[in-house]
Amino acid sequence: MSVSVKRESLEAMRTFDLATTPLRELNSALHTISPGANDTNFEVVNPRGSHSVAVGIDQPVVVDVHGSVGYYCAGMNDGGNVTVHGSAGPGVAENMMSGTVVIEGDASQYAGATGRGGLLVIKGNAASRCGISMKGIDIVVHGNIGHMSAFMGQSGHLVVLGNAGEALGDSIYEAKLFVRGEVKSLGADCIQKDMKPKHLKLLADLLEKAGVTDVKPEEFKRYGSARKLYNFNIDNAEAY
């Protein structure tokens, strides 16, 4: 019967009001989901800039946060699908392993830092050090990113529909960077590279995954490592 189905789905959605409920109750609930459980939809209201909202998720839960969050939201996410209907403070989705994190507003410093997998979508702007030391995460920023982004990026992809700040990709390893707008400056050992058909295909897939429909891969430039700083070589001394 349709009525009872509707009731079931309502019961399955658990709401945490952080104005009246300690954060630890939310995070404990997220950490005690057993594999295969079906009560995996969570709603968080009144986050009011709280730190560490929905950190350490290790099951395919769906979390909708209504409002802006503070430090480290969705940190270490492994398989969760977290949407922040607001802006995020420093370190959102830091060290993400897998899953999806979507920020409807802006993100502060070091969004997606050290992330090893999953997809981080920022619909506004990201501040400095976006994707610093990224190790496999895919990051798509609809707006601009700040300085020192993708510093020492090892793998994964950073896609920026707007502009990038100073020292993009400083000391970068094998992370691939795609920027549609201006790059204020490139960091040490980061260079512009040819956009080959395989890169266009890769970028088209990333844009599709991130729900970007009105932008073509051909509008981007690709940046990556000149690979002069991997091992010390006296001939490359001036690249440092």
């Binding site: 009011r48 800039g49 709280s50 802006s68 503070g70 802006s87 403070g89 507003g105 802006d106 502060s108």
Partner: peptide
């Protein structure tokens, strides 16, 4: 220093917020 400091201000939901 953090958004938390601003959340009790009147009309913060519709404020322009930036760094």
């Amino acid at each position: 220093s953090e958004y938390r400091a601003l959340v009790n201000l009147p009309g913060i939901e519709n404020a322009r917020v930036w760094e």
